[in-house]
Write a protein that binds this DNA or RNA. Sequence first.
DNA 1: ACAAAAGTGTTGTAACTACACCCATGT
DNA 2: ACATGGGTGTAGTTACAACACTTTTGT
Lengths: 237, 237
Amino acid sequence: MYKPDYKKTADGYAYDYPRASITTDCVIFGFNGHDLQVLLIRRGVEPYKDSWALPGGFLKMNETVAECAFRELQEETTLQPETLEQFGVFSDVERDPRGRVVTIAFYALVKQALVKGGDDAADAQWFPLKQLPHLAFDHYDILKEAQLALKRDIHHQPVAFRLLAEHFSMTQLQRLYEDILETQFDRRNFYKKMLASGVITEQKPEDDAKHKLKKLFSFNLTAYADMKKKSTNNQEF
Amino acid sequence: MYKPDYKKTADGYAYDYPRASITTDCVIFGFNGHDLQVLLIRRGVEPYKDSWALPGGFLKMNETVAECAFRELQEETTLQPETLEQFGVFSDVERDPRGRVVTIAFYALVKQALVKGGDDAADAQWFPLKQLPHLAFDHYDILKEAQLALKRDIHHQPVAFRLLAEHFSMTQLQRLYEDILETQFDRRNFYKKMLASGVITEQKPEDDAKHKLKKLFSFNLTAYADMKKKSTNNQEF
DNA sequence: ACAAAAGTGTTGTAACTACACCCATGT
DNA sequence: ACATGGGTGTAGTTACAACACTTTTGT
């Protein structure tokens, strides 16, 4: 446990110098097979009551910022994402009307297919990135930074596969890459390159016979790790 | 100005809930032509008195975290780096014996050639990354994270050129890339690839005649920007 | 029946890797 | 004189971009 460094008084917790408070906010990305989306919650209290906002909240004294982000996420959305990446700190002096609040921003990647349960809370809702509502505080800026971070990280981490269900079609994978990178790819080249990389493997069709042609793929984590290890021999900038 | 959210009492600044304090720490990279180095300062006060540590300090209420990092850097090292990149947040509950302290970590890139003046302070000293002293707090972890961030960023930003003097030899550039990426490159291929990219241009020798063969190069920022813009059409992961 | 989605191969070009020798400089 | 640093070309290989038609699925 940390050593308390405050004086407890009738007026609260007293310090020798004023302090900002710390919050975490979390940009949750999901993918429904067509569009990259973010999960927002509707604020129930002032300030910005009834606005849409990123889930998040205040740091407690016995948790790290990552633990705080996890906890708040679970409290507000019941989600327990596989990954949580810290990508920025937002500290404008006037970013929060309640006072001096510095927020540590994370993004999470969730398999939206598994999250159907999460949307029974009418105050949490998925929005496609292209149709965002107005957001509370500076949350729009935070969200834009998260997009940039995602775009950067996709080259170094298996970002896409944390967003897709276990089995996915090549077209879904491509759409996701295109949404994240904001580009278009040639379908044939994308197909070949992905398969050639060896990190995804084709799933034997399960003889549903409903779909003769539609192939499904899955992600191969160990192959991905091997590929990463081997590529310690190229590229300058 | 932000709206004060504390009660001023005889015991200090009082809040309804306990708060962590916020610091910034800065990993300053430099390059002496042979080795990648970091600038450390010797602590003059407890805790960790006389240990080497990253420059940094407490956030004031009227500055952003980036401003804080700049200010502390100038106060402790007189440096005013071109760039300051935020790369991590360190918030382990017990990372600081003084109490609950969350630190926002930055790295800076400085042209060490221009910094000769900075080392008259005997309590600031450059260390090669391969010969680091023991560091205070969790600063060793922070430094290691900074190295990773630098390694990541070199592919997206003109990192190397902020560390080199205006004119540099190809070998210096290569040594720097090798130090950052922890790899070795073939000298001829490196040479060709760098020149072919167009972002560095050869300097006409200044007829010193002292060096007939030694070529110097300089970085071409606008060419770099053009290259970045054009490369909006490739690569998946 | 029709429209949209999904699967597939080839060829030209550009970029990368591997590799060895000679001259210049400084000690 | 000697060791180190610095400059340079070629050939084989691999990776990439460009491009159109056919089958399948869903409405």
